[in-house]
Amino acid sequence: MAERKIRILLSKPGLDGHDRGAKVLARCFRDAGFEVIYTGCHQTPEQIAAAAIQEDVDLVGLSCLSGAHKYLFPQVVNLLKAEGADDICVIGGGIIPEQDMQPLYDAGLKALFTPGAKLDSLVEWINTNVTPRA
């Protein structure tokens, strides 16, 4: 019978090529029963937004370890909004200094995870906060 499955786009925007963390998350989300579309590294925000729409995901997870999160993360949120797809939840992870957090939340990021975050806590956050669309 009908059962909505949570679909997640996992992507690394910008020039950062360190994707061990993103791969661990992809595996973790797979094991949690989600469908994970992994795009790999070096994505532009435009590519990520287009992919999110083509894949009809509920959640976009962005990983960035290079320090460019302040530009790249909000850009994805804005592009989705411009396409009328602001119902897609965007979260981020990486090395994000404390003082950058509030501006990112203000820009529309729904959650931010930093080194040391437990995999279980991510899955729980998704199960609590992400409802597959109607």
């Binding site: 094991d31 949690a32 469908e35 994970v36 579309i37 790999g40 894949e55």
Partner: peptide, 8 residues
Amino acid sequence: GALLGDRI
């Protein structure tokens, strides 16, 4: 669950 990697 599934890991869909063809887009890469």
